[in-house]
């Protein structure tokens, strides 16, 4: 997966996540049905929430890392830069 696709997927995930957790969709699950003894709406809200987290984690590793390339850092920052970050470009 290219980083551009990962970026687009992140946008889609955010938008779909927002739509899925808002009224037009939510009342659909608000009915007297239980799943494993829990009301459907509770299972849906927390399930969707967890799915968002899992997908976000999966995508976050496919987005490019930031590599600091400032040349005008103060002394305090140089420590911060000399970390063990892997090389890689920073797409604009």
């Amino acid at each position: 997966m290219t980083w551009k696709k990962a970026r687009d997927a992140t946008l889609v995930l955010t938008v779909v996540g927002a739509l899925g957790l808002l009224p037009p969709v939510l009342p659909f699950f608000d009915r007297p049905v239980t799943v494993f003894g829990m009301p459907l709406i509770v299972v849906y809200v927390f399930g969707a929430w967890l799915a968002l987290i899992v997908l976000a984690r999966w995508l976050s590793n496919r987005l490019p890392r930031h590599v600091a390339r400032e040349t005008t850092l103060g002394p305090a920052d140089e420590d911060a830069v000399s970390g063990d970050r892997p090389p890689g470009g920073e797409p604009g």
């Binding site: 992140t10 995930l13 996540g17 509770v42 929430w49 987290i53 976050s60």
Partner: peptide, 20 residues
């Protein structure tokens, strides 16, 4: 009821879309 979840769902969405 579930309304309390909104206080956490908003930040969840902002952080899931952290890239933007």
């Amino acid at each position: 009821g579930l309304e309390f979840a909104t206080i956490y769902l908003g930040p969840t969405l902002v952080f899931v879309g952290w890239w933007f």
